[in-house]
Design a protein around this nucleic acid. Structure first.
Lengths: 345, 345
DNA sequence: CTGAAAGCGCTTACAG
DNA sequence: CTGAAAGCGCTTACAG
């Protein structure tokens, strides 16, 4: 493995000049430059990044905008873990990470956290753009400062983010529908259950539901799909009433809950001993794992929460340190979890 | 962030002495050692790994024993890609990788490659132990030299490997069975198709079949499972005869092929227009992707081939460079692929 | 038992 | 346009 010194000797110049050529800095005669470039090519010289990192002695800071994590059963626990894993791996490059937390149910909290983030100086940002309008307003400042940013978990169209890391929500709904079609028989109806609070937050729930419905449009014989929106998942009497209304009025066999709120629906099924109902939902929380184990939930679609954080972080890092330009959309695998494979994640 | 120099100043010693303490090298008085340790703790000093790597200027070499890759549709193409990706990432630590190739259908070729590998000097080995007996014989030398090794793809019990990275074959069979039970109806039989050449090679095929059968043992009403072994997948007349024999004699609806050879069975189904048959197999090759697209194959179980190589490499690297001891068994996710999620890998 | 100095392969002022 | 030298934070002989 050749070093800058070797190249310099071969070209009969100083290492400073070689360095200038390597980084395309001005102040080298055309002739010298071409000679050095030729030698570099011929000897397949590759810069020693360890030495470079040490010499630069530059510290990078990546800002992360993410919901507060209440407990390990929180959905955001895993993306955070992924971010931390990536942070450890890139720590050798003197990269530090600053977190800015917000309450995912409160857009004011989101704005405040984003404001606080913008008051700091950093080299790149990893953002969960849960509130679309508020995100848009704040991005202007990042764009002005030319700070690169990556979105994760929530897809946000039309911004200058260098990448999005997360699931293709619409297609995940299609997969859910395919599985549902295997679970239920002819002449049996399906109920999609949304939660108002979820829907306000972001479009993923709508996209999942649309994908789900699109699958059945192509099916013959057609399958009836009913839809309800629960105003508040914690208002149990209303939840009870709305669901049981559907169950008595229609011949419902399959339930699709396009969010992690499937936990509450599973509780409902368990309590009311409605084991014949087939249930598909999203996200592997500890509670959902229990419901998968006892087969109250038949299938879960996993968002690769850990990997969202991990890959988001790595993408930013590779962009700012190694000049690697990522794909604009990094769609993660749509993972299907069921009792038989939930052990292996 | 404190440096060794800072710590030395605080302790009124030279950096050489601090270095001795950090690495627990002898030649430091108890008193000085304790003082330095205290200061390190109090200031939460962490060594700069970049500087360490540069100063050590040590090169590591990892040997890889893997089947020859004929084309990009080869199963081993992806593990190799994973190994290469990991290699790039760890290149900054001056780690190089040497490959030793063998023909996976010829145990003599395996022995030769392993012999050649052992003639080289290296710091760790990543091994696909396709031939169990031959692997066992060669491991002795690795153990004697105290060279750490990791197995990938094929599980090999009772060796001193620091880790195994791959799938839990038995459980993947259970998952396949669960999906199969959704695809077929009551009173419909299942046929398991094995290929002789596969079975000789390693136990994964047997484990998958066992897992598959175990699932149906618990089912009521019981489902009939038939089994055939094809002597040679390329002897088409025999393949034809053996399969059509089964199809005429039994009421078969589902086919389970516990290996990537599902490609050939899919071809058979396609040619003979047996679209009503449900087919589950393993591994996403280019050909299998086509059969998933046109729904000749209903589901594929994916082994995370890429990740096997990637994670195997990283595991070894972290072990030799960062002293990270891995789990003995690193079972990867059992991924279920179907038309609707095959785009996202 | 301890320290001073050279070296790892780069980058970066500074001098000419 | 080019070079010599100091420095990044470690490790490693070598001297005492």
């Amino acid at each position: 493995m050749k070093t800058i010194k070797d190249i310099a000797a071969l070209a009969n110049v100083s290492i400073g000049t070689v360095d200038r050529v390597i980084h395309n800095r001005p102040g080298v005669s055309k002739k010298t430059k071409e000679l050095i470039e030729k030698i570099i090519r011929e000897h397949n010289f590759q810069i020693n990044k360890t030495a470079r990192t040490l010499a630069l002695n530059k510290k990078y800071d990546i800002a992360v905008l993410i919901p507060t994590i209440e407990s390990s059963s929180d959905f955001w626990f895993l993306p955070k873990k992924g971010i931390e894993k990536a942070s450890e791996e890139i720590e050798i490059h003197r990269t530090s990470v600053s977190y800015f937390y917000f309450d995912p149910s409160d857009f004011n909290s989101f704005k405040e956290a984003f404001d606080k983030l913008l008051q700091n100086s950093f080299d790149a940002a990893l953002i969960a753009p849960i509130f679309l309008k508020e995100t848009k307003e704040h991005l202007i400042q990042l764009d002005q400062k030319k700070i690169p940013y990556v979105f994760f978990n929530v897809e946000f169209q039309g911004a200058n983010n260098i990448s999005y890391v997360g699931q293709h929500s619409y297609d995940s709904g299609i997969l859910a529908a395919k599985i549902m079609s295997l679970l239920i028989g002819n002449g049996e109806d399906i109920l999609i259950i949304k939660v108002r609070k979820d829907s306000n937050q972001h479009s993923a729930i709508e996209d999942r539901a649309s994908g789900f419905k699109s699958y059945f449009k192509t099916q013959a014989p057609p399958i009836k799909i009913h839809e309800i929106i629960l105003p508040n998942i914690k208002d149990l009497p209303t939840v009870d009433r709305l669901i049981s209304e559907q169950l008595t009025n229609h011949h419902i066999k399959g339930l699709f809950v396009p969010s992690s709120k499937v936990t509450q629906i599973a509780s409902y099924i368990k309590e009311n001993k409605l084991k014949h109902l087939k249930l598909i939902g999203y996200d592997l929380s500890d509670e959902n794992a229990v419901f998968i184990e006892n087969e109250t939930i038949d299938f879960l679609i996993d968002q690769n929460a850990f990997f969202q954080g991990y890959e988001g972080m790595k993408t930013l890092f590779n962009f700012i340190i190694n000049d690697v330009v990522p794909e604009k959309n990094c769609y993660l695998p749509i993972k299907l979890l069921t009792k038989e494979n939930i052990k292996y994640l």
